[in-house]
C-alpha cells in the first residue's frame, strides 16, 4: 500500500476536448495555438484544461510520475504491474467495471507504461465527463489489491512478454534491446 501511494499524487490530469476556438481560427493559419489552462490543486495535483468544441467528446488523461526506468532498483516492474492493477477494480468499482463503464458509454480507454510515466486515458461522450472524473479519482484513491487480482495480473504481465517479445521473431528488437546495449547507467540499461 505504501508503494502505491508513492506512485500517485504527482500527476497531471488533462481534460481535452476538440476544436479550435473562435480566437484561434482568426489567427494566422500557420500559427499553432492550443488553449491551455494550467493550475494545481492544494494537494499538488497538476490540472490542465484544454477546450475543443469540434466534437461532443471529452478526453480524461491521468499521468503518473513513474515510468519503468525511474523505478527504485528493488521495485522494477511495479509501474507496469500497477498499470494492470488499475483496471482490476477498486472498493467502489468491481473487477472489469471501470472498463465497462467506459465502453458501455461508447468510449475507448487504455493505459501504458513508458520510460518516464504511466498513463491512463478515456475518451467518452462529453456528457460523461463527471462520471469519468469520479472513476479516475476513485482508482487513484485506492485499488482493490487482493491476492487473486495480483496473482492474476502477474501472470498476465509475464505472458505479455512471452507472447509479444520472447516468442516473436525480432521480438524486442530494437525498442527493448537497444537501451540495454547503448546505455551504461543501470536505470536506462536494465532489462525492463
Amino acid at each position: 500500500m505504501k508503494n502505491k501511494l508513492l506512485l500517485l499524487l504527482f500527476l497531471a490530469t488533462g481534460i481535452v476536448g476538440f476544436a479550435q476556438n473562435d480566437n484561434a481560427q482568426k489567427k494566422k493559419a500557420s500559427e499553432f495555438n492550443i488553449p491551455v489552462e494550467y493550475y494545481k490543486l492544494n494537494n499538488g495535483l497538476k490540472v490542465i484544461l484544454s477546450q475543443d468544441k469540434s466534437s461532443p467528446t471529452v478526453i480524461v488523461a491521468a499521468y503518473y510520475n513513474i515510468g519503468f526506468r525511474i523505478e527504485p532498483k528493488d521495485r522494477t516492474g511495479f509501474a507496469h504491474l500497477f498499470e494492470h492493477m488499475m483496471f482490476q477494480g477498486s472498493k467502489n468499482l468491481g473487477k472489469m467495471e471501470f472498463i465497462k463503464l467506459v465502453q458501455e458509454n461508447g468510449g475507448v480507454l487504455n493505459g501504458s507504461t513508458r520510460f518516464d510515466f504511466t498513463n491512463y486515458f478515456e475518451i467518452v461522450p462529453s456528457n460523461k465527463l463527471e462520471t469519468m472524473l469520479w472513476a479516475e479519482a476513485d482508482r487513484m484513491k485506492g485499488l482493490d489489491i487482493t491476492q487473486d487480482n495480483l496473482t492474476n495480473q502477474q501472470g498476465v504481465v509475464k505472458n505479455e512478454v512471452k507472447v509479444n517479445v520472447l516468442n516473436q521473431p525480432y521480438g524486442g528488437f530494437p525498442w527493448l534491446d537497444m537501451p540495454q546495449y547503448a546505455n551504461t547507467n543501470w536505470y536506462n540499461a536494465h532489462n525492463f
Partner: peptide
C-alpha cells in the same frame, strides 16, 4: 485527439509548463 492530451500532460509532468 489523445496526442494533444499526451503532450500537455508530458510537459506539465516534466517541465511544469504544458
Amino acid at each position: 485527439g489523445f496526442g494533444r492530451a499526451d503532450l500537455l500532460c508530458s510537459f506539465a509532468l516534466f517541465d511544469d509548463n504544458p
